[in-house]
Nucleic acid binder design. Sequence first.
DNA 1: TGGCGAACTGGAACGTGTTCCTATTTTAGA
DNA 2: TCTAAAATAGGAACACGTTCCAGTTCGCCA
Lengths: 205, 205
Amino acid sequence: MGVRVSSANSLAVEDLGSAAQRDRRKRILDATITLASQGGFDAVQMRAVAEQADVALGTLYRYFPSKIHLLVSALQREFERTEAIMRERPSEGDTAAERVINSLKRTTRGMQSDPQLTEALTRAFMFADGSVAAEIHQVGMLLTSMLTKAMHPEGHDKLTEEDVAIARVIGDVWLSALVGWVTGRTTAAETGQQIEVAVKLLLRD
Amino acid sequence: MGVRVSSANSLAVEDLGSAAQRDRRKRILDATITLASQGGFDAVQMRAVAEQADVALGTLYRYFPSKIHLLVSALQREFERTEAIMRERPSEGDTAAERVINSLKRTTRGMQSDPQLTEALTRAFMFADGSVAAEIHQVGMLLTSMLTKAMHPEGHDKLTEEDVAIARVIGDVWLSALVGWVTGRTTAAETGQQIEVAVKLLLRD
DNA sequence: TGGCGAACTGGAACGTGTTCCTATTTTAGA
DNA sequence: TCTAAAATAGGAACACGTTCCAGTTCGCCA
């Protein structure tokens, strides 16, 4: 456990030898988050990220080969943080449906408290092509794992194929709903409803 | 007098008075589809579209205020064509699940026969922001309607709230699967499975 | 038919993602 | 410690979406 495939594209933390490099990487991602929080996807401009991270433009591209890689990597780091919080303090509820809905609502609420950041990260995620597959896959796994844990908090031994399939479907609906929200096509309330409906359809105990 | 727009920011067919204008619009969309089929999203370059449609760049932007509007409008036209075919020759099957799966597989197969075009249109759809809401909504309605018709071919009188909710969820899964496929993260076979699993979970008669 | 406003043309110009190049600094190995 | 290789800085250059402008053509109507 804990082994992560280092991407062929972005430089993952494990690939970075020196502390200075790890620090550069952190500064870059911090700058990305800051700019995204302030102005969303469009405000994350490569020159601005480089300047704020105190790094040359070429170096930025050395660490992250494109804006999309950069944002998806930032998303990955944020999501890992979220997942850690979830692990520490799992959502409570009597039924699987309740726990799943609670998990997603908590996560969604967190994202809605910083709409610009969410917009930037979600856009990047949806726009990512095959060259970002490794990073995307990581995030997808985290999401599915978060959902299956909410479904079966006792342990993962009991997980059936169907459980995983259901988690995937819920994840898909959540993503679609999120895209609708960040692109201004639906409201936060509608997003919540959309997820709730899907979960209730899929998890009728 | 200023330019009238119907429900969207793009110039819809109804807004175009003269036959020459309708023809220009058609030429633009044709050029878009041609270029998209050949090289996908990246190949749909505004200068290239303008040149191939034999129209000035400024005119192109007059008809479609952005590349995203252009592509989503092209998607809309294609989808209307698909929907017409479906109406003429509905999918057969004994159960709602079978018919829905057949519909989606037929549609998906059509898209997979032109991967570049599908990539271009899907990317645009997922990247579209609030300013394209009208066009997006149109497409969403077509999709939901296609699905509910497959669920209840007899007529729409019997449609319950739940039916529509289910159709929406299936649509979400289909979109997510499509994004995975066009971005090269999943194979065509996996896409089909993903949909099949979701439909079977949601439509267990 | 003449004139007027809208639409169109052709192309310059700007912003931002991305690439590339040279000089300088840092790192690793002998 | 010295040196070669790798990493970084700094910045020019290019591509494509988008905007803008001056001149021309088109369509309508008095």
